[in-house]
Simulated assay, not measured.
Amino acid sequence: MRTRVVRVDPDRPDPAVLAEAGAAIREGQLVAFPTETVYGLGADALDERAVRRIFEAKGRPADNPLIVHVATREDVLRLAHPDPQGRWESLARRFWPGPLTLILPSRPVVSPAVTAGLSTVAVRMPAHRVALGLIEAAGRPIAAPSANRSGRPSPSTARHVIEDLAGRIEWILDGGPTGVGVESTVLDLTGDRPVVLRPGGLSLEQLQETLGDVALHRHEIDPGEVPRSPGLKYRHYAPEAPVVVLEGTPRAVAEAIRRRLAEIGPSGTTPLGLFVSDETLSLLDGQGVLPAPGVRVKRAGARHDLEGIARRLFGALRELDRARPALILAEAVDERGIGIAVNNRLKKAAAGRVERCVEPP
């Protein structure tokens, strides 16, 4: 299959290009497109055959539900029943368009392939002119997971989509790098207490300001259970190389890396990838630990710049992986704001391999 890659201005996308891509959606084709979070792989959410093609292209398990992207709040009511408390409306007024996905009771019009057979549907309105223009041009709600091979780091550029899906889908709309860098926050509104199933681009603190009491789901589901949200059941966001997450202060993390490098030895025969903060890199440089043979470094940024770290995360993991390291060490960030989502993605990529680093004496 030939994949057509079309460059679009993220601020002023060409209406003719959007019209053609929208027609492709109506015809059952797959179109990758930018959102403010990551690139999505879109199909007509009301066309079961087209939706199943998403799973085939990605190699995605069929019990992993999809998010439906809409262009208006009225579209939500065609797909879902509102929660009795009316919480979805106050959230939509404040945070849409934006990186927030809401889980609501589904209406029969939504394909079971989208919901993985659940009685709920996940919906959101993306804050990106290309994404909204495509939905409007298609005249359909668009089901769209991230536009990558299942399990791989999510795509924050069109290049990442091409790496994973060229030859498997019909269209890629290249709108440049995404702004947030991690996926949307998924909030379940089907119970009495709202629950964040997947932390993302909208922080827990922002949700609590609007709703008050909001829980954060922190546990894996049972292997036989159908997940209510993407990102709950399977290994996600992972490069080919194994990943270990390092938790601790910059001094503690730098010491853990120094010990690892001492184990490797001067030959550098065991390549190592590092995704660490500026503060940790400064300590390693000051100790004469870096640069070192066989070590590839991607700068995460300053520890306080959680938004910047989130933007760089998936691209850094992909770039480190191209060097085929034997191991990638990634530094955890503070558990606040979007940092909760960054740590969630890192620990998913590491399949739970976390090292708690101790301050040197």
Rank of each mutant, 00 (worst) to 15 (best):
G288M: 08
I264V: 15
E220L: 15
R258E: 14
G28H: 03
R87L: 04
T178A: 02
P242I: 03
A254L: 10
P230Q: 10
G315K: 06
R93Q: 13
V358D: 10
R235C: 06
L66C: 06
K348P: 07
A144Y: 04
R12I: 09
R12Y: 13
G181Y: 11
F95N: 05
H217W: 13
P15I: 06
A143E: 00
R52P: 01
R60I: 07
W88C: 11
A332H: 01
R193H: 14
V196G: 03
E136V: 02
L317Q: 10
R318M: 03
I309L: 12
N148Y: 00
T115H: 06
A122M: 05
R7V: 13
A349G: 09
V244F: 04
L211F: 07
A19D: 08
A316L: 07
Q206S: 14
A143K: 04
D188I: 04
A238T: 12
R345D: 03
A113N: 01
S106W: 09
K233N: 09
R107N: 06
V182G: 00
G133E: 07
R159N: 02
R93K: 14
F275T: 05
V130F: 02
V51A: 07
P271I: 11
L77S: 13
G224R: 14
D213G: 11
D213M: 12
I172W: 00
L246T: 02
L18M: 07
I103S: 04
K298E: 15
P153L: 06
A21D: 12
F314D: 05
I264G: 05
G98K: 02
P177M: 08
E136K: 10
G191A: 11
P291W: 01
V295K: 04
V123R: 01
A122R: 03
F33M: 12
A127D: 14
I135H: 07
V68W: 09
